[in-house]
Design a protein around this nucleic acid. Structure first.
Lengths: 214, 214
DNA sequence: TAGATTGTTAATCGATTAACAATC
DNA sequence: TAGATTGTTAATCGATTAACAATC
């Protein structure tokens, strides 16, 4: 019954398809061919068809793809038709920024709790959600069906907190701490290493300057 | 005089090498073999040697790599020995979070200015940097040798602001807006699409749940 | 039916891994 | 010198692109 494994390269492209299809839908576009979509997105039509066909035939020969339908289907593939409760650990600037970002809610990600070790922050609210102390984290995760923990804390604390989260049934960690986390198989980790991203940018600036001597 | 193009796959791994080597250095480790490093980082030794050799021979047969030296060299490759001035456009939660993040400074990224269209924010300070109005953006970028613009604004405004930035000599855009930017060749763009990242996580949660029926 | 465009197989390209000769 | 480990070539693997038969 094992479904064939989809490569992460394909998965990584799905959100972008989803975004373009959503915009097309909002503009009232009803159908689109892989050729048209490829020009819009600047990828090959071949790749688009291959990607979609990993999940079954969403199109129709001679017609193309129905935008609304394809949009819905990709949403389902991404699990956006399900609700996922999340907590944010670390009530600093970044944690607050993520807590305040309303669009996650639209995609089924529900902001349930926020935690910090700083006593001065405890009791404050971020978008209606109370900041709690770290000692409440484990029971809260256990009792409130929390799927995702967002880590916006320094790397030293991140490592130890991950164990607590795992022991209390967390399913996924969205990791903004600058460290590689060790989790058992079955717990998903998605890293957002902002400084890595900035270093890549730095490399590309310098490479271009060298090549062009400016 | 064209140097051979290094693939973005390799570039994307450099910051992680840099991080591990920095930690090893801080622990006082003097030398390391590709084999040891591969176990630490959970990649193949072969890949490590291939990656480094894109930039020349940093090691020594029979010895391995000198940690300090390799760390310095990768830093240079990433352009971290150079200073880069940046401005943040959008003084919302995310913009403030990035402005307050001190570690960028350590890597040579210098926070020079912040802009927002909200009149109430103008004049406020984020880590000693004054928030200015959008009408000041173009001249500021032109006159202050700004290399990098960090976009933490909604996607509608992002597209029009990019043109202004490009016209005033910006070299790179670190884009947190949820839109693909169109820039001339020579201007580097690094996208951080947070909701894309969260959707990938969502996919992996759901895939795992399906495969394991929990 | 004819034209268009998918779904899918085959060919190509690039990235990763393995192997080993060079060399410290 | 012998042992270790790199640098680099060759083999493999996987992802992307091209081609085209199937079909709406």
């Amino acid at each position: 019954m094992e479904e064939k494994e989809i490569s992460q390269a394909v998965i990584g492209r799905l959100p972008r398809y989803f975004r373009y299809l959503g915009e097309l839908r909002d503009e009232g576009v009803e159908r689109i061919s892989s050729q048209e979509l490829s020009e819009l997105m600047k990828v090959t039509a071949s790749q688009i068809r291959q990607d979609f066909n990993n999940f079954g035939g969403f199109g129709q020969q001679g017609y193309g793809y129905n935008v609304e339908y394809l949009y819905e289907e990709i949403g389902k593939i991404l699990g956006l038709d399900k609700k996922h409760n999340f907590v944010i650990i670390g009530a600093g600037n970044l944690g607050r920024a993520l807590g305040n970002y309303m669009n996650f809610e639209r995609r089924g990600f529900i902001f349930r709790g926020m935690f910090d070790q700083d006593k001065k922050l405890i009791g404050q609210e971020v978008r209606g959600v109370k900041i709690m102390g770290m000692e409440e984290l484990e029971s809260f995760v256990r009792d409130n069906n929390i799927d995702i923990a967002v880590l916006t804390i320094p790397k030293t604390s991140a490592v130890e907190i991950v164990d607590k989260l795992v022991n209390n049934g967390i399913r996924a960690i969205w990791n903004f701490a600058h460290v590689d986390l060790n989790v058992p198989k079955g717990v998903q980790v998605e890293n957002v290493h902002l400084s890595d991203s900035l270093m890549k940018l730095s490399y590309n600036i310098n490479r271009y300057m060298k090549e062009n001597d400016r």
